[in-house]
Amino acid sequence: MQTSFEHFAVASMMGQPDTPPRANGSLCFHQPWERQAFGLAVALARDGHFEWEDFRQALIAEIAAWEACHSRDDPGWDYYECWLNALEAVTRANVLPHIPAAGSMLALVDSTP
């Protein structure tokens, strides 16, 4: 079951260039890490560590950068690799500067309310 923020986050992406993969109307994850990366991005934005729109723009930029270097039928395409790269970018810009031991995952966990 989605929270209201999760519903907002997914709905804001519908019909946009950053729309997540779907199967039969549901989000589609092929690997466990994809679901975890998705959930982490939503949770960090929901908890105020960065704005969802900032993440979306980073994701759109990642997708555009990938498309600029590859053909549309390149079998190396992976939406969630772009997702993860965007998450890393907004985390580096918005979360890590506010953690005393920047780069420490333990510090990130300890700083989360």
Rank of each mutant, 00 (worst) to 15 (best):
H98I: 14
M1C: 13
W52Q: 10
V10S: 08
F8H: 06
A65H: 08
A37L: 06
F55M: 04
A101V: 14
E88K: 12
A93R: 06
E67R: 15
G103R: 09
E51W: 07
A65P: 02
D54C: 14
A65Q: 13
A107E: 05
S111T: 13
A61Y: 06
D74W: 07
S4V: 15
L27G: 00
T91G: 03
L40P: 03
N24A: 08
V109Q: 08
Q16N: 04
P97D: 01
P17R: 07
G103W: 08
A102R: 10
D110S: 15
W52F: 13
A43V: 09
A64G: 08
G15Y: 10
S4F: 13
Q31S: 07
E67G: 05
N24L: 13
A65G: 09
E67Y: 11
D78H: 14
W83G: 02
G39M: 05
R35S: 12
D74I: 11
L59T: 03
L59D: 00
H30C: 10
T91L: 02
L59E: 00
A37C: 09
E62M: 10
G25P: 01
F5M: 09
D110N: 14
A37I: 05
C28D: 06
I63L: 11
Y79F: 06
H7Y: 14
A41W: 01
S104P: 01
I99R: 01
A23P: 05
V10C: 05
Q57G: 09
G39S: 04
G76I: 14
